[in-house]
Structure formats: C-alpha cells, structure tokens
Amino acid sequence: MLKVWRKVIATGNVTEPWEKAVPPERSRGEVVVQQNIPCQGCNHCANVCPTNAIKVYQGLPMINQRACIFCGLCVEHCEAGCLKQTSNYKLAELGGSLGENSGSELKRQIRRTLGRSLHIRHLDIGSCNGCDFEMNHVCNPIYDIQQYGIDFVASPRHADLLMVTGPVTRNSTQALRMTYEATPNPKLVMALGACACSGEQIFGESYAIRGAVDSQVPVDIYVPGCPPRPQAIIHGLMLALDRM
C-alpha cells in the first residue's frame, strides 16, 4: 500500500480538464449550408447521402443532423459548393442551449440539480459498438467525468439517465421497454449516435430493425454522430441536467 501511495505522489495529477481537449479544426463535424452560395438544385447531395439526412426543399438543402454521420460525401458531390463541413460537435438537441460550460460548472450543476452524483445506465440495443467505444472514453484520464460526479451503474434501478446506443432491434425491444420501466422517476433517456437518434442507420432496411429509440420510449436528449465524440457526449449530459 505504501508503494502505491509513493507512486501516486511521484506521478501527480495526470487528469486534464475535458474542456481543454477541443477537437482540431480538421475533425469532421456538423455540415452547414452556406447562405451566400446559392444551391443549384442538382440533388447530388441527397442522392449520395447514405442515411437520407439531406432533403432539397425549394432549392435549399435541409440537413437532419440527427441522421448525419459526418461522412462528407454531400460536401464532395455538391457542384455549387454551398455545403461546408465544420468541426462543430455540439449538436445535442434540447430546448435552449447551455453555451460554454466548464468542468467546474458541470460539477456545480450536478450538485445543484441532484444533490449527489449523476448515475447513468448504458443500454446497447443493437449498435456496431462505435458509440460504445466513444462512451468508454469519457471515463479515461483525459475526460474523467467521474471527477465531476458522474458514474455508470450496473442496474437501471439505480440510474437517473438511460444512455441508449444503436437502433432498436426486434430482439432488444422488450429489454429496452423493461429497462425504461425499471428506471425510477424522474428519469431521462439519451439517444446516443445517429442510429439511435434517427433510425436512419447505415445498416440499411431490415426486418430485424424497428428504428429510432423514440419509436419505443420517450427520448429527452439526442446526441447525433457516427460516432459522437466524447466532448459531444459530455455536452449532451449538460443538456440532460438542464432538462432534469
């Protein structure tokens, strides 16, 4: 035990505040429509989108951010160049916005809202595990959300929030509903990833897939992406606290 303490003292604090881990500008994020460049209405962007996230309406591309997987095909095939891919990852949807919140503010908000830690139960209902890997990163030394009072629990009966990944499959439908019912009130549900948010998954049409999470249970927070970055997941948790 003394050897462990000596090592801890010698190593020091290796955890970095998550707000400093900003994605680089070259990272793929939100696709936006540049208003100063008119659309030619060629529909090439909508035709190449693998998740049907783009519709051209009255000569203007409309992007469903819940279904967008940031592949960039629409930007590459846009002849007019009116589409632009940014590095913006803060796409979690909820009424209003919390703006820029630091880690210390996140910790204060959790204590102010719950008076204790925020407990999360993760539920994989059919994902490819891409979102699950990114979700695991929020507990690593760089982001370390446990230092702000956020913990993952093994039982939905101990959870405040359900973090659901993947599209709803037929075999997982009952498990999703039973897990939702077992979570005590007040409870929140977060759909994590493009598949969970929109149901327009890249797996294609299948008899085994029923669609988005909100087709079976109410969803409070949508965190799109394929997969969403750890920073996007933390931003979604901030919005979840605002809803709670």
Rank of each mutant, 00 (worst) to 15 (best):
R116T: 13
S117M: 09
L83M: 05
P167E: 04
C82D: 06
G130T: 01
K84E: 13
C139E: 14
R112H: 08
Y89H: 01
C128R: 05
Q147D: 09
R108A: 15
D132H: 06
G95C: 11
T179Q: 04
A154P: 04
G103S: 14
Y148S: 06
T173Q: 15
V153D: 01
C128W: 02
R177M: 14
I125A: 05
G99K: 04
Y89G: 00
G130E: 03
F152K: 07
I145V: 15
S127M: 05
F133A: 13
M178H: 10
Q109L: 15
R170E: 14
N171A: 14
S104C: 07
C139F: 15
R157G: 03
H77S: 13
N88G: 03
S155C: 05
L106H: 05
L114H: 08
S104D: 14
L91R: 08
T113L: 09
E76P: 04
F133D: 03
V75Q: 02
L176K: 05
I110R: 02
D144S: 14
A80E: 02
V138D: 00
I125Q: 03
E134M: 11
T173I: 15
G149Q: 08
I110Y: 02
K107L: 01
G126V: 04
F152C: 08
C71T: 03
R121S: 07
N171T: 11
R157T: 04
S117K: 13
T165F: 09
N129S: 13
H77I: 11
N129A: 14
G166I: 04
Y89I: 07
L118D: 05
T179C: 07
C82I: 12
C128I: 01
S117W: 07
G81Y: 09
A159P: 00
D151A: 10
A80Q: 03
S104T: 10
D160P: 06
L91S: 02
S127W: 03
F152Q: 09
C82M: 10
Y180L: 05
H137A: 11
T169R: 12
F133G: 03
T86R: 09
Y143L: 09
H158P: 00
C71P: 00
D144T: 12
Q109M: 15
H122D: 13
I125R: 01
G166T: 01
E76K: 14
R112F: 09
P141A: 11
E76W: 10
T179M: 09
K84D: 00
G81M: 05
C128D: 02
R177D: 06
S97L: 04
D124E: 10
C131H: 07
L118H: 01
G126N: 01
S97R: 12
C131P: 01
Q146K: 12
Y148T: 01
R112Q: 08
A175L: 13
V138W: 02
R112C: 00
A80H: 04
K90Q: 12
G115C: 08
M135D: 03
D144N: 15
M163D: 07
H158C: 10
G96N: 08
A80F: 09
L94F: 15
L73I: 01
E93C: 01
H137W: 08
L83R: 04
I110F: 02
T165K: 11
I120K: 08
I120P: 02
S102V: 03
H158V: 09
V138C: 07
T165G: 07
N171V: 11
H119G: 02
T179F: 10
E93N: 02
